[in-house]
Computed example of a mutant assay.
Amino acid sequence: MRNSLMRITLRQLQVFRSVCKLLSYSRAAEAMSLTQPAVSLQIRQLEELIDQPLFEYVGKKLYLTAAAERLSEATTDIFQRLDELDMQLSDLRGSLKGQLRIAAESSAKYLTPHLLSAFQQRFPDVSPLLRVVNRAQIIRRLADNRDDLVIMSLVPEDMALEFMPFLNNPIVAVAPAEHPLCQIKAEELTLNDLQEYPLLIRESGSGTRKACEEFFQQKRVHFTRTMELNSHEAQCEGVMAGLGIAFLPRHAVYRELQTGDLRELPVKGLPLYRSWCLVHARGKRLSPVAQAFVNFIRTERDIISQIAKRFEVKKGIE
């Protein structure tokens, strides 16, 4: 290793990381309570130590150079290791402390906060950082090792991943209460009966959409009229507005089902069950906080069952 690299300070890396995140010297200075000349000086000293330019302006916009991209990766690793060390030292003192970086597929955003709340009651010094994204973004985040853990369904088979199923994710067909399909008895309503109505679907890359498309293909059902909406909330509002019917995770619409704004259609063969899974890259070194969350999900079945009951629709109300 070059001697000059050994003279890099953590403070310089903190300033560098802030500039990378904000792509602005002035905003980085404000975020770190420094003057802009102080930020410029730290970056200039860092560039001298690595003997490479780190940033360049194109027009009025700041861009990272190739050297900055490599340094950013190393900086992320360094600070992650320091976070792990802090957690390990806290563990030795008999307390669990640190940040839990977790990403959840968008349809899991209703469930995940309840899991994190239960976990934080057990470990109050843990600070969860939750990112909610769609399935395609989850897969990219897994490939880039952006998070400690991920909650998703339909775990991709072509990636080296460890996963633990922990709860059913029921996907149901919903319609407004006055819809003609709501008048058909449960034993008589089939998936084929739904084909003549407009179907509200999620955007490409959604896990719920992928699960439904695979299910429709398996059942040889084809919806000729579809409308794409980019969130479960938009689908829910669209159904209530009379734009069509939708297939949605019951966790996402349990309030509307309880109030009667939506009705779960008693379609033969539904709900479509998939499992929520806790996922991380195979061989990934989990931080003490992440390992504690894995252990919590694995062992606290009663707590998870109690959380799941909050999303059940009471009979006689739906």
Rank of each mutant, 00 (worst) to 15 (best):
D91I: 04
S24H: 05
Q99Y: 02
S106E: 14
G94E: 15
V132M: 13
F216W: 14
F293V: 00
P266M: 13
N3I: 12
V174Y: 03
R2M: 10
P198T: 12
R209I: 09
E237T: 13
E162T: 15
T190L: 02
P128I: 11
M159Y: 14
F216T: 12
L92G: 00
P113W: 06
A292V: 11
D125L: 13
A28N: 12
P176G: 06
F293R: 00
K309G: 01
A173L: 11
L181M: 14
T190A: 01
A246S: 15
G207F: 03
I138W: 00
T76W: 03
D51F: 08
V126P: 08
L189W: 03
C182K: 06
K210F: 01
T299N: 10
L272F: 00
L243V: 06
L46V: 04
L129R: 14
R122Y: 05
I317N: 04
L92Q: 08
S33R: 14
D91E: 14
A66K: 06
F296W: 13
L270V: 12
Y110L: 08
T65V: 08
F79C: 03
K21I: 04
A308H: 12
R250T: 12
R146W: 05
F311M: 05
S72G: 04
Q45W: 02
G316R: 05
S117K: 12
L22H: 02
A103W: 07
E196Y: 00
L100T: 07
F166C: 12
R202M: 08
F296R: 01
L49C: 06
D147Y: 07
E228A: 15
S275C: 07
S26M: 07
A108R: 02
I245D: 09
I201Y: 00
E84H: 02
Q120F: 06
E178F: 00
